[in-house]
Structure formats: structure tokens, C-alpha cells
């Protein structure tokens, strides 16, 4: 038996299935949130480049509020605050909503920058052929913008995956929460938390590799 303060291999092996379960929940929450975040972010990002003042105003307000407040506070408001106005959510939906709304704001800014990174001439050429604004966006601007924002989107996904650890405060049993529960029962903080960190790395490193790879793949067929 190895003492507290040193890495306990036996304990580590015993808690592996629990950590794997926690990692799975984390991945699940993050994937759902990024999916909804992408939808929210695309719409808000489009609104951010819109000439329509109402769309622009609402989306700008949304982005400013979300980016100006801590995610933890947003989570607390949605889970503990909303019941005050009659909206009671279970932890998981509340968590997913909080992460989606938050990542949506960041993705909106990524989408805006991506759209603006496509030269104006592309839009003009598309319009001169008779495409409508939305057709030009869909066939010309978005595909090029997507390529430009892919690294940023990947980074956002990784950041969100790490931020999902904050959901442990509203009793969602994801990776970080699993770690804390093990610590509470084994009184060993060193091994479980290192295990937790290891599992986060096992998810984030392949993800960042994937981002780099897809970036290269998209880049090669075009540039020479």
C-alpha cells in the first residue's frame, strides 16, 4: 500500500471505469452543447454581419452579455436562478443550455470573423451571377469561411470540453465530479485528480490533432 501523497497505482486501476464513465458524460455534454452552440452561433454570427439593425443589435447584446460574465455564474443563474421565475430544469438540460448559450456567443464571434475574412469580391462575383444574398452565403461565403474558422472552432470545442468541468457544481456527474466523489470516499486527492487530468488530456490532445489534420487536408487541395 502506497501512502497518501504518492501515486496509488492500485487505486488508479480501480477507479478507471468510473473515470471513463465520467469522461463519456463530459464528451456527451460537450458534443451536444457544441452542436447547439454551432446553431446558435451561426445564426448570431450572421446577425452580427447583417445590415438589419434589430438583428445586429440583439446579437451584439447577446454576445456582449455572455462574453462579459463568467460561465460559472451563467450556470448558477440557469440552474438555481431560473426557478425563481418558474422555470425548473434538471441539472443536465440546465448544463447543456448554459454551455450552448455560452459557446454560441463565442462561436458567433468566430463565425463573424470567418465571414468577414472572405474577400468582398467573392460576394460581388456571386451576386453578379444572379445569386441571392442567401445563396451567395450558402454556396460561396460559408464554405470559404468554414475553412478559415475550422481551427478556431476546434479550439472552441476544446475550451468548452474543459469548461464543462464547471457543471460539477450543479451535481452533474461528469468527469470532474466523478473525481471529487472518489476523493471524498478514498481521502486520496492526488491519484484521482491526476487521473481526471489524464482523461481530459486523452480527449483534448486527439481533438487538437484532428483540428490540425483537417486543416491540412482542406488546405492541400487548394494551395500549391
Amino acid at each position: 500500500m502506497v501512502g497518501v501523497g504518492q501515486f496509488d497505482i492500485d487505486l488508479f486501476l480501480r477507479i478507471l471505469p468510473d473515470l471513463a464513465f465520467g469522461a463519456f458524460v463530459t464528451l456527451e455534454l460537450t458534443s451536444l452543447s457544441i452542436l447547439f452552440g454551432l446553431i446558435i452561433g451561426s445564426i448570431a454570427g450572421l446577425a452580427r454581419v447583417s445590415k438589419n439593425r434589430i438583428f445586429f443589435g440583439i446579437s451584439t447584446l447577446y454576445v456582449e452579455i455572455i462574453r462579459g460574465t463568467p460561465l460559472l455564474v451563467q450556470i448558477l443563474i440557469i440552474y438555481f436562478g431560473l426557478p425563481a421565475i418558474g422555470i425548473n430544469l434538471r441539472p443536465e438540460p440546465a448544463g447543456i443550455i448554459a454551455l450552448s448559450v455560452c459557446s454560441g456567443a463565442y462561436i458567433a464571434e468566430i463565425v463573424r470573423a470567418g465571414i468577414q475574412s472572405v474577400p468582398l469580391g467573392q460576394m460581388e462575383a456571386a451576386r453578379s451571377l444572379g445569386m441571392s444574398y442567401l445563396q451567395s452565403m450558402r454556396y460561396i461565403i460559408f464554405p470559404q469561411a468554414f475553412r478559415n474558422i475550422l481551427p478556431a472552432l476546434g479550439n472552441e470545442f476544446i475550451a468548452l470540453l474543459k469548461d464543462s468541468s464547471l457543471l460539477s457544481v450543479i451535481s452533474i456527474v461528469e468527469l470532474t465530479r466523478v473525481g471529487r466523489q472518489i476523493v471524498n470516499t478514498t481521502f486520496n486527492a492526488w491519484t484521482p485528480f491526476l487521473g481526471v487530468a489524464l482523461f481530459y488530456l486523452m480527449m483534448t490532445i486527439p481533438l487538437s490533432r484532428l483540428v490540425t489534420y483537417s486543416q491540412k487536408r482542406i488546405g492541400t487541395y487548394e494551395m500549391k
Binding site: Q122, A125, R127, S128, G130, S132, Q144
Partner: peptide
Amino acid sequence: INKIRQRIGMVFQQFNLFTH
């Protein structure tokens, strides 16, 4: 105007080919 533009071709100084 989209219908009208289909009847008017335009070529630009900077080509503006769709890069993707």
C-alpha cells in the same frame, strides 16, 4: 435584380474566382 443580373455578365479586375 437577381433575375436581371443573370442577363448581365460581369468580369472583375481581381478575377474574384471562387477559391474553394
